[in-house]
Write a protein that binds this DNA or RNA. Structure first.
Lengths: 227, 227
DNA sequence: AGCGATGCACATGACATACAACTGATTCCG
DNA sequence: CGGAATCAGTTGTATGTCATGTGCATCGCT
Protein backbone atom coordinates (compact mmCIF):
# COMPACT_ATOMS: atom_id res chain seq x y z
CA UNK A 1 0.00 0.00 0.00
CA UNK A 2 0.99 3.57 -0.37
CA UNK A 3 2.78 5.33 2.42
CA UNK A 4 0.16 8.05 2.40
CA UNK A 5 -2.61 5.56 3.13
CA UNK A 6 -1.75 4.94 6.74
CA UNK A 7 -1.13 8.61 7.37
CA UNK A 8 -4.56 9.36 5.95
CA UNK A 9 -6.17 6.77 8.19
CA UNK A 10 -4.40 8.18 11.22
CA UNK A 11 -5.30 11.79 10.63
CA UNK A 12 -8.82 10.81 9.65
CA UNK A 13 -9.35 8.86 12.84
CA UNK A 14 -8.03 11.73 14.90
CA UNK A 15 -10.51 14.09 13.27
CA UNK A 16 -13.50 11.76 13.31
CA UNK A 17 -12.70 10.66 16.83
CA UNK A 18 -13.05 14.23 17.95
CA UNK A 19 -9.45 14.59 19.11
CA UNK A 20 -8.96 17.49 16.76
CA UNK A 21 -11.73 20.08 17.01
CA UNK A 22 -13.02 21.94 13.99
CA UNK A 23 -10.82 24.88 13.08
CA UNK A 24 -7.71 23.54 14.76
CA UNK A 25 -4.47 23.85 12.87
CA UNK A 26 -2.60 20.75 11.77
CA UNK A 27 1.13 20.52 12.31
CA UNK A 28 3.14 21.98 9.46
CA UNK A 29 4.03 19.68 6.60
CA UNK A 30 7.64 19.62 7.72
CA UNK A 31 6.74 18.56 11.26
CA UNK A 32 4.52 15.85 9.86
CA UNK A 33 7.44 14.69 7.74
CA UNK A 34 9.54 14.19 10.86
CA UNK A 35 6.74 12.59 12.81
CA UNK A 36 5.96 10.00 10.16
CA UNK A 37 9.46 9.68 8.75
CA UNK A 38 8.44 10.34 5.16
CA UNK A 39 9.11 13.00 2.58
CA UNK A 40 7.04 16.08 2.08
CA UNK A 41 5.67 14.51 -1.09
CA UNK A 42 3.86 11.82 0.88
CA UNK A 43 2.54 14.22 3.48
CA UNK A 44 1.19 16.49 0.82
CA UNK A 45 -0.51 13.59 -0.93
CA UNK A 46 -2.26 12.62 2.27
CA UNK A 47 -3.40 16.18 2.84
CA UNK A 48 -4.66 16.49 -0.72
CA UNK A 49 -6.79 13.39 -0.41
CA UNK A 50 -8.23 14.53 2.90
CA UNK A 51 -8.95 17.89 1.35
CA UNK A 52 -10.78 16.11 -1.44
CA UNK A 53 -12.89 14.40 1.20
CA UNK A 54 -13.68 17.71 2.83
CA UNK A 55 -11.95 16.97 6.11
CA UNK A 56 -9.20 19.57 5.76
CA UNK A 57 -8.83 23.01 4.28
CA UNK A 58 -5.58 24.76 3.58
CA UNK A 59 -4.55 28.39 3.64
CA UNK A 60 -1.39 29.23 1.78
CA UNK A 61 1.27 30.61 4.04
CA UNK A 62 -0.72 29.83 7.14
CA UNK A 63 -1.38 26.14 7.50
CA UNK A 64 -3.85 23.31 7.18
CA UNK A 65 -6.96 23.26 9.35
CA UNK A 66 -9.74 20.87 10.32
CA UNK A 67 -12.65 21.85 8.09
CA UNK A 68 -16.09 22.70 9.34
CA UNK A 69 -18.91 20.49 8.10
CA UNK A 70 -19.90 21.45 4.63
CA UNK A 71 -22.94 20.50 2.60
CA UNK A 72 -21.06 20.83 -0.67
CA UNK A 73 -18.88 17.91 0.28
CA UNK A 74 -21.96 15.80 0.85
CA UNK A 75 -23.40 16.97 -2.45
CA UNK A 76 -20.21 16.06 -4.27
CA UNK A 77 -20.22 12.57 -2.84
CA UNK A 78 -23.85 11.98 -3.72
CA UNK A 79 -23.38 13.34 -7.18
CA UNK A 80 -20.33 11.18 -7.74
CA UNK A 81 -22.11 8.10 -6.52
CA UNK A 82 -25.12 8.67 -8.70
CA UNK A 83 -23.06 9.59 -11.74
CA UNK A 84 -20.95 6.44 -11.51
CA UNK A 85 -23.80 4.17 -10.51
CA UNK A 86 -24.60 1.30 -12.83
CA UNK A 87 -28.11 -0.05 -13.36
CA UNK A 88 -28.09 -2.28 -10.32
CA UNK A 89 -27.40 0.57 -7.92
CA UNK A 90 -29.69 2.89 -9.75
CA UNK A 91 -33.02 1.61 -8.55
CA UNK A 92 -31.78 1.97 -5.00
CA UNK A 93 -31.00 5.59 -5.75
CA UNK A 94 -34.46 6.14 -7.18
CA UNK A 95 -36.07 4.67 -4.07
CA UNK A 96 -33.84 6.87 -1.96
CA UNK A 97 -34.97 9.88 -3.89
CA UNK A 98 -38.62 8.92 -3.61
CA UNK A 99 -38.32 8.56 0.13
CA UNK A 100 -36.75 11.96 0.58
CA UNK A 101 -38.96 13.84 -1.83
CA UNK A 102 -42.08 12.41 -0.29
CA UNK A 103 -40.94 13.65 3.09
CA UNK A 104 -40.05 17.01 1.57
CA UNK A 105 -43.57 17.42 0.25
CA UNK A 106 -44.93 16.59 3.69
CA UNK A 107 -42.65 19.08 5.40
CA UNK A 108 -43.19 21.75 2.80
CA UNK A 109 -46.92 21.59 3.48
CA UNK A 110 -46.11 22.40 7.09
CA UNK A 111 -43.24 24.84 6.78
CA UNK A 112 -43.44 26.47 3.38
CA UNK A 113 -43.88 30.23 3.52
CA UNK A 114 -45.56 32.54 1.08
CA UNK A 115 -42.35 33.03 -0.93
CA UNK A 116 -41.97 29.34 -1.67
CA UNK A 117 -45.61 28.97 -2.64
CA UNK A 118 -45.41 31.95 -4.97
CA UNK A 119 -42.36 30.41 -6.60
CA UNK A 120 -44.17 27.11 -7.07
CA UNK A 121 -47.18 28.82 -8.59
CA UNK A 122 -45.01 30.70 -11.01
CA UNK A 123 -43.25 27.50 -12.03
CA UNK A 124 -46.59 25.85 -12.68
CA UNK A 125 -47.63 28.71 -14.94
CA UNK A 126 -44.38 28.48 -16.84
CA UNK A 127 -44.77 24.74 -17.28
CA UNK A 128 -48.22 25.13 -18.77
CA UNK A 129 -46.76 27.46 -21.34
CA UNK A 130 -43.79 25.23 -22.16
CA UNK A 131 -45.72 22.31 -23.52
CA UNK A 132 -43.86 22.48 -26.81
CA UNK A 133 -40.35 22.91 -25.46
CA UNK A 134 -39.46 19.61 -23.86
CA UNK A 135 -36.06 20.71 -22.55
CA UNK A 136 -37.52 23.77 -20.89
CA UNK A 137 -40.42 21.77 -19.53
CA UNK A 138 -38.03 19.25 -18.02
CA UNK A 139 -35.97 22.04 -16.49
CA UNK A 140 -39.03 23.55 -14.88
CA UNK A 141 -40.13 20.14 -13.68
CA UNK A 142 -36.88 19.67 -11.81
CA UNK A 143 -36.96 23.21 -10.47
CA UNK A 144 -40.41 22.54 -9.04
CA UNK A 145 -39.10 19.57 -7.11
CA UNK A 146 -36.05 21.42 -5.86
CA UNK A 147 -38.11 24.35 -4.59
CA UNK A 148 -40.23 21.93 -2.60
CA UNK A 149 -37.07 20.38 -1.21
CA UNK A 150 -35.87 23.80 -0.11
CA UNK A 151 -39.28 24.44 1.37
CA UNK A 152 -38.90 21.42 3.60
CA UNK A 153 -36.54 23.39 5.80
CA UNK A 154 -34.05 20.54 5.99
CA UNK A 155 -30.92 21.42 4.06
CA UNK A 156 -29.74 17.84 3.88
CA UNK A 157 -32.78 16.83 1.88
CA UNK A 158 -32.33 19.75 -0.47
CA UNK A 159 -28.65 18.98 -0.86
CA UNK A 160 -29.14 15.32 -1.61
CA UNK A 161 -31.84 16.00 -4.16
CA UNK A 162 -29.79 18.69 -5.83
CA UNK A 163 -27.02 16.16 -6.22
CA UNK A 164 -29.33 13.60 -7.77
CA UNK A 165 -30.75 16.17 -10.14
CA UNK A 166 -28.42 15.41 -13.06
CA UNK A 167 -29.15 11.73 -13.20
CA UNK A 168 -32.83 12.39 -12.81
CA UNK A 169 -32.76 14.56 -15.89
CA UNK A 170 -31.14 11.76 -17.81
CA UNK A 171 -33.81 9.22 -17.22
CA UNK A 172 -36.64 11.70 -17.20
CA UNK A 173 -35.76 12.58 -20.77
CA UNK A 174 -36.27 9.00 -21.85
CA UNK A 175 -39.95 9.23 -21.09
CA UNK A 176 -42.22 9.59 -24.04
CA UNK A 177 -43.49 13.11 -24.32
CA UNK A 178 -47.01 12.75 -25.67
CA UNK A 179 -49.87 15.00 -24.71
CA UNK A 180 -51.35 12.65 -22.11
CA UNK A 181 -48.02 12.50 -20.35
CA UNK A 182 -47.73 16.28 -20.33
CA UNK A 183 -51.21 16.71 -18.93
CA UNK A 184 -50.65 14.10 -16.27
CA UNK A 185 -47.46 15.75 -15.06
CA UNK A 186 -49.11 19.14 -14.85
CA UNK A 187 -52.16 17.94 -12.99
CA UNK A 188 -50.08 15.87 -10.56
CA UNK A 189 -47.89 18.85 -9.81
CA UNK A 190 -50.95 20.97 -9.32
CA UNK A 191 -52.31 18.46 -6.83
CA UNK A 192 -49.08 18.59 -4.86
CA UNK A 193 -49.08 22.36 -4.89
CA UNK A 194 -52.70 22.54 -3.76
CA UNK A 195 -51.97 20.29 -0.81
CA UNK A 196 -48.95 22.35 0.18
CA UNK A 197 -50.91 25.59 -0.08
CA UNK A 198 -53.61 24.18 2.17
CA UNK A 199 -51.12 22.79 4.64
CA UNK A 200 -52.33 19.23 4.12
CA UNK A 201 -49.15 17.35 4.84
CA UNK A 202 -50.34 13.80 4.31
CA UNK A 203 -52.10 14.67 1.10
CA UNK A 204 -49.03 16.40 -0.25
CA UNK A 205 -46.85 13.46 0.69
CA UNK A 206 -49.16 10.96 -0.92
CA UNK A 207 -49.50 12.98 -4.09
CA UNK A 208 -45.74 13.30 -4.38
CA UNK A 209 -45.29 9.61 -3.66
CA UNK A 210 -47.73 8.63 -6.37
CA UNK A 211 -46.08 10.99 -8.82
CA UNK A 212 -42.64 9.55 -8.23
CA UNK A 213 -43.78 5.94 -8.23
CA UNK A 214 -45.24 6.37 -11.68
CA UNK A 215 -41.96 7.87 -12.79
CA UNK A 216 -40.13 4.90 -11.27
CA UNK A 217 -42.40 2.49 -13.07
CA UNK A 218 -41.64 4.12 -16.38
CA UNK A 219 -37.93 3.75 -15.72
CA UNK A 220 -38.30 0.08 -14.86
CA UNK A 221 -40.37 -0.57 -17.98
CA UNK A 222 -37.86 1.18 -20.16
CA UNK A 223 -34.78 -0.63 -18.85
CA UNK A 224 -36.52 -4.00 -18.80
CA UNK A 225 -37.44 -3.46 -22.40
CA UNK A 226 -33.84 -2.66 -23.28
CA UNK A 227 -31.80 -5.07 -21.20
CA UNK B 1 -6.72 30.07 -6.55
CA UNK B 2 -4.60 27.01 -6.86
CA UNK B 3 -3.64 25.78 -10.27
CA UNK B 4 -4.99 22.35 -9.45
CA UNK B 5 -8.48 23.72 -8.81
CA UNK B 6 -9.41 24.33 -12.41
CA UNK B 7 -7.90 21.04 -13.50
CA UNK B 8 -10.02 19.30 -10.89
CA UNK B 9 -13.13 21.03 -12.12
CA UNK B 10 -12.37 20.08 -15.68
CA UNK B 11 -11.70 16.41 -15.04
CA UNK B 12 -14.65 16.26 -12.69
CA UNK B 13 -17.02 17.68 -15.24
CA UNK B 14 -15.76 15.26 -17.87
CA UNK B 15 -16.44 12.34 -15.54
CA UNK B 16 -19.81 13.52 -14.24
CA UNK B 17 -20.87 14.59 -17.69
CA UNK B 18 -20.43 11.03 -18.83
CA UNK B 19 -17.70 11.78 -21.34
CA UNK B 20 -15.38 9.39 -19.58
CA UNK B 21 -17.00 6.01 -18.89
CA UNK B 22 -16.28 4.05 -15.74
CA UNK B 23 -13.07 2.09 -15.99
CA UNK B 24 -11.52 4.24 -18.69
CA UNK B 25 -7.90 5.14 -18.28
CA UNK B 26 -6.90 8.75 -17.81
CA UNK B 27 -3.99 10.17 -19.77
CA UNK B 28 -0.66 9.63 -18.06
CA UNK B 29 0.49 12.30 -15.66
CA UNK B 30 3.13 13.45 -18.09
CA UNK B 31 0.60 13.92 -20.89
CA UNK B 32 -1.65 15.86 -18.55
CA UNK B 33 1.31 18.07 -17.68
CA UNK B 34 1.73 18.98 -21.33
CA UNK B 35 -1.97 19.45 -21.92
CA UNK B 36 -2.42 21.84 -19.01
CA UNK B 37 1.04 23.38 -19.06
CA UNK B 38 1.80 22.68 -15.43
CA UNK B 39 4.24 20.59 -13.49
CA UNK B 40 3.63 17.04 -12.41
CA UNK B 41 3.12 18.29 -8.86
CA UNK B 42 -0.03 20.12 -9.83
CA UNK B 43 -1.41 17.23 -11.83
CA UNK B 44 -0.78 14.85 -8.97
CA UNK B 45 -2.49 17.20 -6.53
CA UNK B 46 -5.57 17.23 -8.70
CA UNK B 47 -5.55 13.46 -9.00
CA UNK B 48 -5.10 12.99 -5.27
CA UNK B 49 -8.06 15.18 -4.47
CA UNK B 50 -10.25 13.41 -6.99
CA UNK B 51 -9.11 10.10 -5.54
CA UNK B 52 -10.16 11.36 -2.13
CA UNK B 53 -13.56 12.08 -3.57
CA UNK B 54 -13.80 8.62 -5.00
CA UNK B 55 -13.88 9.65 -8.63
CA UNK B 56 -10.53 8.14 -9.59
CA UNK B 57 -8.50 5.13 -8.62
CA UNK B 58 -4.86 4.61 -9.39
CA UNK B 59 -2.81 1.53 -10.11
CA UNK B 60 0.91 1.92 -9.69
CA UNK B 61 2.78 1.28 -12.88
CA UNK B 62 -0.40 1.16 -14.91
CA UNK B 63 -2.36 4.38 -14.75
CA UNK B 64 -5.28 6.29 -13.30
CA UNK B 65 -8.81 5.14 -14.03
CA UNK B 66 -12.36 6.41 -13.63
CA UNK B 67 -13.63 4.69 -10.51
CA UNK B 68 -16.77 2.63 -10.32
CA UNK B 69 -19.40 3.86 -7.91
CA UNK B 70 -18.51 2.90 -4.41
CA UNK B 71 -20.59 2.91 -1.27
CA UNK B 72 -17.57 3.47 0.94
CA UNK B 73 -17.07 6.88 -0.58
CA UNK B 74 -20.63 7.78 0.28
CA UNK B 75 -20.14 6.44 3.79
CA UNK B 76 -16.99 8.50 4.23
CA UNK B 77 -18.75 11.66 3.19
CA UNK B 78 -21.70 11.06 5.49
CA UNK B 79 -19.43 10.21 8.36
CA UNK B 80 -17.33 13.29 7.80
CA UNK B 81 -20.38 15.50 7.63
CA UNK B 82 -21.88 14.11 10.79
CA UNK B 83 -18.59 14.17 12.66
CA UNK B 84 -17.94 17.81 11.83
CA UNK B 85 -21.56 18.90 12.21
CA UNK B 86 -22.29 21.49 14.86
CA UNK B 87 -25.51 21.63 16.83
CA UNK B 88 -27.49 23.49 14.21
CA UNK B 89 -26.87 20.86 11.56
CA UNK B 90 -27.33 18.05 13.98
CA UNK B 91 -31.09 18.04 14.29
CA UNK B 92 -31.31 17.86 10.53
CA UNK B 93 -29.14 14.79 10.65
CA UNK B 94 -31.34 13.20 13.28
CA UNK B 95 -34.44 13.81 11.19
CA UNK B 96 -32.64 12.36 8.21
CA UNK B 97 -31.81 9.29 10.21
CA UNK B 98 -35.37 8.93 11.47
CA UNK B 99 -36.73 9.11 7.96
CA UNK B 100 -34.41 6.41 6.67
CA UNK B 101 -34.70 4.08 9.62
CA UNK B 102 -38.46 4.24 9.56
CA UNK B 103 -38.41 3.22 5.93
CA UNK B 104 -35.91 0.48 6.74
CA UNK B 105 -38.26 -1.01 9.29
CA UNK B 106 -41.06 -0.96 6.75
CA UNK B 107 -38.95 -2.63 4.09
CA UNK B 108 -37.47 -5.13 6.52
CA UNK B 109 -40.98 -6.30 7.37
CA UNK B 110 -41.45 -7.04 3.70
CA UNK B 111 -38.04 -8.33 2.66
CA UNK B 112 -36.31 -9.68 5.74
CA UNK B 113 -35.46 -13.38 5.51
CA UNK B 114 -35.13 -15.94 8.23
CA UNK B 115 -31.44 -15.16 8.77
CA UNK B 116 -32.07 -11.51 9.56
CA UNK B 117 -34.91 -12.34 11.91
CA UNK B 118 -32.81 -14.89 13.77
CA UNK B 119 -30.09 -12.28 14.14
CA UNK B 120 -32.55 -9.76 15.54
CA UNK B 121 -33.94 -12.29 18.00
CA UNK B 122 -30.48 -13.14 19.20
CA UNK B 123 -29.67 -9.46 19.68
CA UNK B 124 -32.82 -9.01 21.73
CA UNK B 125 -31.82 -11.87 23.99
CA UNK B 126 -28.38 -10.42 24.45
CA UNK B 127 -29.81 -7.00 25.29
CA UNK B 128 -32.02 -8.43 28.00
CA UNK B 129 -28.96 -9.93 29.61
CA UNK B 130 -26.87 -6.75 29.34
CA UNK B 131 -28.98 -4.59 31.56
CA UNK B 132 -26.03 -3.88 33.82
CA UNK B 133 -23.42 -3.17 31.15
CA UNK B 134 -24.42 0.09 29.55
CA UNK B 135 -21.67 0.13 26.95
CA UNK B 136 -22.54 -3.36 25.79
CA UNK B 137 -26.23 -2.57 25.83
CA UNK B 138 -25.64 0.49 23.68
CA UNK B 139 -23.54 -1.53 21.25
CA UNK B 140 -26.30 -4.12 20.89
CA UNK B 141 -28.86 -1.39 20.47
CA UNK B 142 -27.01 0.03 17.52
CA UNK B 143 -26.38 -3.41 16.07
CA UNK B 144 -30.13 -4.05 16.16
CA UNK B 145 -30.79 -0.97 14.10
CA UNK B 146 -28.06 -1.77 11.61
CA UNK B 147 -29.32 -5.30 11.06
CA UNK B 148 -32.74 -3.90 10.25
CA UNK B 149 -31.11 -1.48 7.84
CA UNK B 150 -29.37 -4.36 6.09
CA UNK B 151 -32.65 -6.24 6.09
CA UNK B 152 -34.25 -3.44 4.11
CA UNK B 153 -32.44 -4.64 1.01
CA UNK B 154 -31.37 -1.12 0.05
CA UNK B 155 -27.63 -0.76 0.50
CA UNK B 156 -27.75 3.02 0.44
CA UNK B 157 -29.89 3.09 3.56
CA UNK B 158 -27.59 0.66 5.33
CA UNK B 159 -24.55 2.66 4.28
CA UNK B 160 -25.91 5.99 5.42
CA UNK B 161 -26.97 4.63 8.78
CA UNK B 162 -23.64 2.91 9.30
CA UNK B 163 -21.98 6.26 8.73
CA UNK B 164 -24.21 7.98 11.25
CA UNK B 165 -23.60 5.27 13.80
CA UNK B 166 -20.72 6.97 15.59
CA UNK B 167 -22.52 10.21 16.27
CA UNK B 168 -25.61 8.33 17.32
CA UNK B 169 -23.60 6.54 19.97
CA UNK B 170 -22.40 9.84 21.31
CA UNK B 171 -25.77 11.30 21.96
CA UNK B 172 -27.39 8.03 22.90
CA UNK B 173 -24.93 7.75 25.76
CA UNK B 174 -26.14 11.01 27.20
CA UNK B 175 -29.51 9.49 27.96
CA UNK B 176 -30.14 8.58 31.54
CA UNK B 177 -29.90 4.85 32.06
CA UNK B 178 -32.48 4.08 34.71
CA UNK B 179 -34.53 0.93 34.82
CA UNK B 180 -37.60 2.46 33.18
CA UNK B 181 -35.51 3.60 30.28
CA UNK B 182 -34.00 0.17 29.86
CA UNK B 183 -37.38 -1.53 29.94
CA UNK B 184 -38.85 0.92 27.47
CA UNK B 185 -36.04 0.34 24.97
CA UNK B 186 -36.38 -3.39 25.20
CA UNK B 187 -40.13 -3.43 24.78
CA UNK B 188 -40.02 -0.99 21.90
CA UNK B 189 -37.44 -3.07 20.10
CA UNK B 190 -39.53 -6.13 20.73
CA UNK B 191 -42.54 -4.43 19.18
CA UNK B 192 -40.53 -3.61 16.08
CA UNK B 193 -39.23 -7.14 15.83
CA UNK B 194 -42.69 -8.62 16.22
CA UNK B 195 -44.02 -6.48 13.41
CA UNK B 196 -41.13 -7.46 11.14
CA UNK B 197 -41.60 -11.13 11.91
CA UNK B 198 -45.26 -10.90 11.04
CA UNK B 199 -44.61 -8.93 7.89
CA UNK B 200 -46.65 -5.97 9.10
CA UNK B 201 -44.85 -3.17 7.31
CA UNK B 202 -46.87 -0.22 8.52
CA UNK B 203 -46.79 -1.40 12.11
CA UNK B 204 -43.04 -1.87 12.00
CA UNK B 205 -42.57 1.57 10.49
CA UNK B 206 -44.76 3.22 13.05
CA UNK B 207 -43.09 1.45 15.95
CA UNK B 208 -39.66 2.47 14.69
CA UNK B 209 -40.81 6.02 14.13
CA UNK B 210 -42.15 6.31 17.64
CA UNK B 211 -38.98 4.85 19.06
CA UNK B 212 -36.76 7.31 17.25
CA UNK B 213 -38.97 10.30 17.96
CA UNK B 214 -38.68 9.69 21.68
CA UNK B 215 -34.93 9.47 21.28
CA UNK B 216 -35.00 12.76 19.38
CA UNK B 217 -37.04 14.40 22.10
CA UNK B 218 -34.51 13.37 24.70
CA UNK B 219 -31.73 14.92 22.66
CA UNK B 220 -33.62 18.17 22.26
CA UNK B 221 -34.37 18.31 25.98
CA UNK B 222 -30.77 17.68 26.85
CA UNK B 223 -29.30 20.31 24.57
CA UNK B 224 -31.93 22.88 25.45
CA UNK B 225 -31.10 22.38 29.09
CA UNK B 226 -27.42 22.88 28.38
CA UNK B 227 -27.25 25.65 25.81
C1' DA C 1 2.57 56.20 24.10
C1' DG C 2 0.32 55.22 19.92
C1' DC C 3 0.43 53.32 15.50
C1' DG C 4 1.58 52.34 10.92
C1' DA C 5 5.37 50.44 8.06
C1' DT C 6 8.93 47.24 7.62
C1' DG C 7 11.09 43.07 7.93
C1' DC C 8 11.64 38.30 9.23
C1' DA C 9 10.47 33.55 10.29
C1' DC C 10 7.57 30.20 8.77
C1' DA C 11 4.01 28.17 6.00
C1' DT C 12 2.11 26.36 1.69
C1' DG C 13 2.29 26.35 -3.72
C1' DA C 14 4.85 25.11 -7.65
C1' DC C 15 8.73 23.37 -10.43
C1' DA C 16 12.51 20.25 -11.76
C1' DT C 17 15.00 16.12 -11.40
C1' DA C 18 16.15 11.65 -10.13
C1' DC C 19 15.34 7.10 -8.99
C1' DA C 20 12.45 3.08 -7.19
C1' DA C 21 8.83 -0.08 -8.05
C1' DC C 22 5.38 -1.92 -10.74
C1' DT C 23 2.63 -3.17 -15.21
C1' DG C 24 1.86 -4.85 -19.61
C1' DA C 25 3.46 -6.30 -23.81
C1' DT C 26 7.08 -7.70 -26.67
C1' DT C 27 10.90 -10.39 -27.66
C1' DC C 28 13.90 -14.06 -27.13
C1' DC C 29 15.24 -18.69 -26.15
C1' DG C 30 14.83 -23.52 -25.07
C1' DC D 1 4.81 -23.49 -28.62
C1' DG D 2 5.48 -21.86 -23.83
C1' DG D 3 7.76 -19.58 -20.46
C1' DA D 4 11.43 -16.39 -19.14
C1' DA D 5 13.92 -12.26 -19.79
C1' DT D 6 13.63 -7.68 -21.36
C1' DC D 7 11.95 -3.09 -22.05
C1' DA D 8 9.16 0.99 -22.49
C1' DG D 9 5.79 3.29 -19.97
C1' DT D 10 3.68 4.72 -15.56
C1' DT D 11 3.00 5.80 -10.83
C1' DG D 12 5.33 6.35 -6.05
C1' DT D 13 8.81 8.65 -3.28
C1' DA D 14 12.66 11.64 -2.20
C1' DT D 15 15.17 15.90 -2.48
C1' DG D 16 16.18 20.61 -3.46
C1' DT D 17 14.81 25.14 -4.83
C1' DC D 18 12.28 29.11 -5.31
C1' DA D 19 7.81 31.81 -5.24
C1' DT D 20 4.32 33.65 -2.58
C1' DG D 21 1.36 34.35 1.27
C1' DT D 22 0.60 34.84 6.60
C1' DG D 23 1.35 36.41 11.09
C1' DC D 24 4.06 38.42 14.37
C1' DA D 25 7.55 41.23 16.21
C1' DT D 26 10.25 44.98 15.69
C1' DC D 27 11.36 49.50 14.45
C1' DG D 28 10.68 54.29 13.59
C1' DC D 29 7.93 58.29 13.13
C1' DT D 30 4.71 61.43 15.09
Amino acid sequence: MQRSAKIIRLIESEILGGKMPVGQRLESEEKLCERFGVSRTVIREAIQQLRGRGLLRTIKGSGTYIAESNLDTLANAMEAYSALAEDLDFLELIDFRILIETECARLAAIHAGEAVIRELRSLMDAMRQSKADRAEFSRLDIAFHLVIARGSGNRIYATVLRALEKKCIDYARKNRGDSDWFQSIVSTHQAILDAIENGKADVAAEAMHKHLLSSRRQYVDLTDGQG
